[in-house]
């Protein structure tokens, strides 16, 4: 039998050379990442950063994609005399691992002079809070399976980060229960590590088109029925079990927050979390719990503003979680006012 080094050395060399010279994520175009990054980058390129005071980077999932109109927020801020740019990176079904990839690719796309310019102004990272995604770092991964969308963020460079989140999220028995997820992850990871099928994918690569981060709903889901009032749902009294559950997510979330910050290498001057009111009790409870967490982090969910009352009409909603266009306008308006207040009070 040939000795161990006869296969380990070529394997190691291959992995290093290939991964350094040919980044695997770029070979998966069916992820929203390249299109989202392109639109954010083009928006940034079009601005003279010397005249900008704030760059507000907003990341999120379908809730943000349907409910947050970055351009409207930017207009309100400008009307209040705050020169700001809103860069939005949001897409339906984007879990935290995927959003981590969006932000990484955005940072990689910046020119050195843009990074220098950003250092001289205030960069705020606004991050969506939602129970499903905050509960599970890879929420929806098995649904997307080994599609290009998930393969893009399962590059070898993201693996240590993703596994550290999972390690903090799962207990010993969970690792066994989640064997499907883990074997899928391992398969996808090896696939990317060795660049299987990389060349044909790169050959078929089409030029990237912009992906709009705000995509409002204009109809209502036929399955949506609102019960009670949004206000009542939001005014949650939390039971011990829910609190214990929500608290168990904290260790991996803290690590996630650190990892997100590290992407920006000190560019971020402040952070802000935001949530959408919800007709779902579980989500509303989670938002309420999140709002009551001690700490300096800013959190916007509309509490204390007219937002919840204004949105308390089922006709503004697509379903229990997602807004329609009219609802998105109200939400964006209120969120913009919140940002203005925070900026004026020097909290941001």
């Amino acid at each position: 039998m040939p000795r161990w080094y006869s296969y380990l050395i070529p394997l190691g060399l291959w992995v290093v050379v290939i991964n350094v010279s040919m980044p695997a994520p770029k070979s998966y175009p069916d992820s929203p990442a390249p299109g989202l990054v392109l639109q954010a980058k083009q928006k940034l390129d079009a601005q003279d950063l010397a005249r900008v005071q704030y760059v507000i980077l907003v990341e999120g999932s379908s809730l943000t994609m349907n409910g947050f109109d970055g351009n409207r927020v930017q207009t309100v801020l400008t009307e209040h005399g705050i020169p700001a740019i809103i860069l939005q990176l949001s897409s339906a079904g984007a879990n935290h691992a995927e959003r981590y990839q969006y932000l990484k690719e955005f940072m990689e796309a910046l020119r050195p002079d843009q990074i220098d310019a950003l250092r001289r102004i205030k960069v705020v990272l606004c991050r969506e809070v939602e129970l499903g995604y905050d509960r599970n770092p890879l929420n929806g991964f098995l649904r997307n399976g080994s599609t290009g969308r998930s393969m893009r963020y399962l590059g070898p460079d993201n693996f240590p980060t993703i596994f550290s989140w999972l390690a903090l999220k799962f207990g010993a028995t969970d690792w066994f229960k989640k064997h499907n997820l883990l074997t899928d992850l391992a398969g996808c990871g090896l696939f990317n590590l060795f660049h299987v099928g990389y060349v044909p994918r790169m050959e078929e690569l089409a030029p990237t088109a912009q992906t709009e981060p705000f995509f409002p709903n204009i109809t209502q889901s036929p399955t949506f029925t609102a019960t009670g009032s949004l206000d009542a749902v939001a005014d949650a009294v939390l039971d011990k079990r829910s609190v214990a559950n929500f608290s168990s997510y904290l260790p991996w979330q803290r690590k996630r927050d650190r990892d997100f910050r590290e992407i920006f290498r000190g560019l971020i001057t402040s952070e802000c979390y935001f949530a959408f009111p919800s007709w779902s009790k579980g989500d509303a409870d989670y938002n309420a719990w999140k709002r009551r967490q001690p700490g300096k982090a800013l959190f916007f969910d509309g509490t204390g503003t007219p937002l919840v009352k204004e949105l308390d009409q089922p006709s503004l909603w697509y379903d229990q979680l997602h807004l329609q266009l009219a609802g998105a306008e109200i939400y964006s308006e209120q969120f913009a006012k919140y940002l203005v207040e925070q900026i004026q009070s020097k909290s941001l």
Binding site: P10, G197, Y198, V199
Partner: peptide
């Protein structure tokens, strides 16, 4: 090993 990896990279 290298040939295998090379083929895998070229393959659909």
């Amino acid at each position: 090993v290298l040939a295998t990896l090379c083929v895998a990279m070229l393959a659909k």
